[in-house]
């Protein structure tokens, strides 16, 4: 047998390509897929944006708050008696019930995780007036600790896929099938965003959050309970991450892995910055934009360029609009 060693330095293989045909041919598929992935980015991005708006803190451990939600949804499925293997067929009533249960579990676990994280990691630092650098390194440390706890508990392999709902085309747009899971994800993300937006802008608690974001000291003097506001901010961010976790697990059934939040967290944070950090609607816009642009980039330049395209876009937009597309808004005074 021939044992001549082939040199694998790819000669004649393009290191970049401009496949306009693929970009145009795949345009609608990429757009629709990108919007559903972008909705997940947006829901996670809201958590980054809220905490940043109130505390000026980049909560790097938010990606793990999300992953805890993914595991909660997974074990809800498991607890309901579902096992890895072929997708089962469920009645519509059962399906909605089970998904709602998983949604509640994921939101509860992510919300609780976020609140506990705030209590354990950030509140003691705030009491001691620690500089912001300390908060940053604590956030990174907390992220690692939570990740490794999952690793020790569940090991390095992803959980075996459990799926309650198979993606089935519901209707087609421009010859591209739109699946039930995509519809659920996008609609739910929009609904949750409207709810969050209304909560922040129309309710008493929301006014408290905006007040603390604008000027914590004055807000305290005016009788706003700052600690409570901060706790609620983390809770809301956690609840939204929990919802994102369920939709993510429905889309990627193999997603329950200890390091499954890392890349998604960075992308969501990017989405938050892209739209204007501290701005709820900006998070949605940034998430959706990032989701589609990633796919366009992959089709146009090839898979190796997927992440590069997303981050080059971020840099370009920040060059022209340093506060993001919609600008910062949570802390802005409104009449």
């Amino acid at each position: 047998m021939n044992h001549q060693v082939v040199t694998y330095l790819a000669e004649g293989v393009d290191w970049i390509r401009f496949d306009v045909d693929a970009l145009l041919g795949q345009f609608w598929n990429n757009t629709i897929e990108g919007l559903s992935q972008g909705s997940i980015y947006a829901l996670v991005a809201l958590g980054y944006t809220l905490v940043y708006g109130v505390l000026r803190l980049i909560n790097f451990a938010h990606s793990e708050v999300f992953v805890f939600g993914v595991f909660a949804a997974y074990f809800t499925f498991y607890g309901l008696g579902f096992r890895p293997g072929p997708t089962v067929t469920l009645g519509i009533g059962e399906l909605i019930l089970f998904l709602l249960l998983a949604l509640i579990a994921a939101m509860a676990v992510s919300g609780a995780t976020a609140v506990v994280l705030e209590r354990v990691a950030y509140r003691p630092l705030r009491r001691r007036n620690a500089p912001s650098l300390v908060f940053l390194i604590t956030a990174i440390g907390a992220s690692f600790v939570m990740q490794q706890v999952l690793f020790i508990w569940r090991g390095g392999n992803a959980e075996q896929a459990i799926r309650l709902l198979r993606p089935e085309p519901v209707f087609t747009v421009f010859n591209t099938a739109v699946t039930n899971i995509q519809i659920i994800t996008v609609l739910a993300a929009l609904v949750l965003l409207v709810v969050a937006d209304t909560f922040i802008n129309r309710t008493r608690l929301g006014r408290g959050i905006r007040a603390v974001a604008q000027d914590p000291d004055t807000a305290t003097l005016m009788g706003v309970n700052k600690e409570r506001v901060i706790m609620i901010t983390f809770l809301v961010g956690g609840l939204l991450a929990g919802a994102a976790a369920l939709f993510y697990l429905m889309k990627i059934p193999q997603g329950a892995s200890y390091q499954g939040g890392f890349l998604l967290g960075i992308k969501a944070f990017t989405a938050a910055v892209l739209g204007g950090i501290g701005n709820l609607r900006g998070a949605l816009l940034g998430g959706l934009l990032l989701g589609v642009v990633e796919n366009y980039g992959q089709s146009l330049f090839g898979g190796d360029w997927r992440d590069i395209v997303a981050f080059v876009l971020l840099i370009v937009i920040l060059m022209f609009r340093p506060t993001g597309i919609l600008g910062e808004s949570l802390g802005k005074a409104r009449v």
Binding site: G25, L263, E294, S299, G303, D304, R306
Partner: peptide, 20 residues
């Protein structure tokens, strides 16, 4: 020919290409 990244979970664009 297509390429993907380690730890990637969403392969929509590649799947679309393969499908076509």
């Amino acid at each position: 020919q297509e390429s993907v990244k380690t730890k990637q979970t969403d392969f929509a664009a590649v799947v679309g290409k393969v499908q076509s």
